[in-house]
C-alpha cells in the first residue's frame, strides 16, 4: 500500500458517499446516469468474484464488499425507489451500454493476464470500468450545466483513477518485478476521459466561487 493508492481508494469512497447523500437526501437522481451506475455494478460484481478465494487483506476484502453493496444500492434506489425513480429520465440517459459491454467482453477474452476464466472476467471488468463513465459524461453534456454535488461526484471519481495511475508509477519504480500493462492502459484511458471535465470543473471552482460547471 502507498499513499497514492490509499488516497485513490479514499477518493473512490468519497464519490460513493457524495452520490448516496445526493440521491437519498436530495431525493433526486436528476443529472445522474443510471446507465453508468449499472455499469459500475457490473464492474464490481465481476471483478470482486475473487472475494471468496483471494484474501489479500481485511482492508481489501472490506472495500470489495462496500463497493459491491454501494453500487448495487445506488442502482436499486434510482431504478425502484420512489421518489428517485421518477426523477430518472430514460430519454436523456439513453447511452447504448451494450456497445460498451460487448467490446469489453471480447477484449477481456482476448487480452488478459493468465487465460483463466477469472482473469478473463477480471480484464473485462477493468476495460468496462475505463468506459463506464461515458453515459454519465454524455448526460452532463446534454444538460450543459452540472449540478454542484454531481460535479464533485464526477471529480472524485476521476481523481480516484488518476491517483491509481500515480500508484502504478510509484510501484513500477519501487518494486523490481512489477508490470501491469493491462490495468495501466485501461487506467490511462479512464483518466483521459475526465480531462475535459476536469478542465471545466477547475474553471468553475477557481477562486473559490462555486459557479456551476458548464460543459459546452
Amino acid at each position: 500500500m502507498n499513499i497514492f493508492r490509499f488516497l485513490g481508494d479514499m477518493s473512490h469512497i468519497l464519490s460513493f458517499v457524495i452520490l448516496l447523500l445526493k440521491i437519498t437526501q436530495g431525493k433526486s437522481a436528476a443529472g445522474i446516469s443510471l446507465r453508468t451506475q449499472e455499469l459500475y455494478m457490473i464492474v464490481f460484481c465481476s471483478r470482486y468474484l475473487d472475494l471468496f478465494w483471494n484474501f489479500s487483506s481485511l482492508y481489501n476484502s472490506f472495500l470489495k464488499v462496500v463497493f459491491i453493496a454501494c453500487s448495487s444500492a445506488i442502482v436499486y434506489i434510482i431504478r425502484f425507489k420512489s421518489p428517485q425513480k421518477d426523477t430518472w429520465n430514460p430519454e436523456l440517459d439513453n447511452f447504448p451500454i451494450q456497445y460498451l459491454i460487448g467490446p469489453c467482453a471480447v477484449a477481456g477474452l482476448l487480452i488478459n493476464q493468465d487465460w483463466t476464466p477469472f482473469e478473463m472476467i477480471w480484464a473485462f471488468s477493468i476495460y468496462l470500468e475505463a468506459v463506464a463513465i461515458l453515459p454519465q459524461l454524455f448526460l452532463l453534456q446534454k444538460q450543459g450545466e452540472v449540478e454542484n454535488l454531481t460535479s464533485h461526484y464526477v471529480a472524485a471519481l476521476g481523481a480516484y483513477r488518476g491517483l491509481y495511475l500515480m500508484n502504478w508509477v510509484y510501484r513500477y519504480f519501487t518494486e523490481d518485478d512489477y508490470l501491469q500493462r493491462i490495468v495501466w492502459f485501461a487506467g490511462t484511458v479512464q483518466t483521459g476521459l475526465y480531462i475535459d471535465f476536469f478542465y471545466h470543473y477547475y474553471q468553475s471552482k477557481r477562486g473559490g466561487l462555486s459557479r456551476p460547471v458548464k460543459l459546452p
Partner: peptide
C-alpha cells in the same frame, strides 16, 4: 520484468 497481476489492488 514480466506481466503479473498482484491481487492486492481493488
Amino acid at each position: 520484468r514480466h506481466d503479473r497481476r498482484p491481487h492486492d489492488e481493488l
